[in-house]
Design a protein around this nucleic acid. Sequence first.
DNA 1: GTCTATACAACGATAGAC
DNA 2: GTCTATCGTTGTATAGAC
Lengths: 202, 202
Amino acid sequence: MTESIRCPRPSAKRDAILDAACAVFLEVGYAAASMDSVANRASVSKATIYAHFNDKDDLFGAVIRMRCDRNLNLTSVDSALDARDTLTVIGQRFLNLLLQPDSLSMYRLVTAEAPRQPDLARAFYESGPGTSKTQIAQAISDLGRRGLLNVDDAWQMADLFIGMLRTDLFMRTLLGLPQTKERTVDQAVSAAVETMLRAFGP
Amino acid sequence: MTESIRCPRPSAKRDAILDAACAVFLEVGYAAASMDSVANRASVSKATIYAHFNDKDDLFGAVIRMRCDRNLNLTSVDSALDARDTLTVIGQRFLNLLLQPDSLSMYRLVTAEAPRQPDLARAFYESGPGTSKTQIAQAISDLGRRGLLNVDDAWQMADLFIGMLRTDLFMRTLLGLPQTKERTVDQAVSAAVETMLRAFGP
DNA sequence: GTCTATACAACGATAGAC
DNA sequence: GTCTATCGTTGTATAGAC
């Protein structure tokens, strides 16, 4: 019996299966993704998939966890920047990350399956939204320590900042509704940053 | 051929099918919802479903549109209230609505299917998030006219306010992660309202 | 481990009687 | 319109050879 979670030692076929499965799941969703289409895309027979993974759920879990492992660094910014520039840089990184097609597909996929796969939902939260929140709270805390922001509860402020970034623009993009793209990201970040400065500026 | 969208004249069986389909879709998602389970739940034969709806997609669309038609009034508040109380009342209504199990299931369902069903995504947005935003922008605009809030762009402020309400609490609930419920809603609303007042208070 | 071929169940949709 | 019964397809998963 293959151990798919612990000790996934490298294997060319295994990686090809994971990549193909990831693409298919993100494209058509969990239920509509057939093992046949994954096998074809990976140029592998269906039986080979079952040699590496117990079943479809197991494969799905491995895909999600693989994607969750690569978490980004949102908050490595020049420490000489003031509050406005720091928040702007972080906000742009965060929002651009959030609006990437892959991120949106991942979000749709995991939230849809969350009621049936609580473990995956937790893994996704911790590696995605949870990590972002931690990083941003840390950055806000630093700004507070430098006297550039009135920081009472850094976690709550991170929550508010993230919320102001994840607005209608996110919702509309998530739903695939038309949007004027480039301009709007900058505009959303600017609105969030200015509101943060108004509310918590020194 | 049954017209399922226009002129859905009342029919007991038809309503039973719609209710059953709604329950099943919200429970297990689109793909996992079988026509058999809908038929059983509605105490109706499968053929009867196909007498009223063209296919599964058509039934799904009818369900979503039915749920979209009942939009709520978030912003009918006592006009004597000040900005803090007005925003608090609206915020609590909005967030409580958002965190209801049915709302969350609907959100999961529509966002997951949005790439395959753009029309439904649009209908959902307009009757849900779009309507809420319009109502809240209207309320904020009123507060501005009464001199209780510095309103430059009411739509943008509504966006920010909604974003600050739809924070980590929403994400965690959406993903089914444990949460201390009652206290947290009030806390989230309070944080959002106080930040609005700090940033846009007179 | 990897393949071809297949078993077996579930599903969407329809036929035909009433 | 509503039912029972069924068709044809697709999907997950496995058997057995190599």
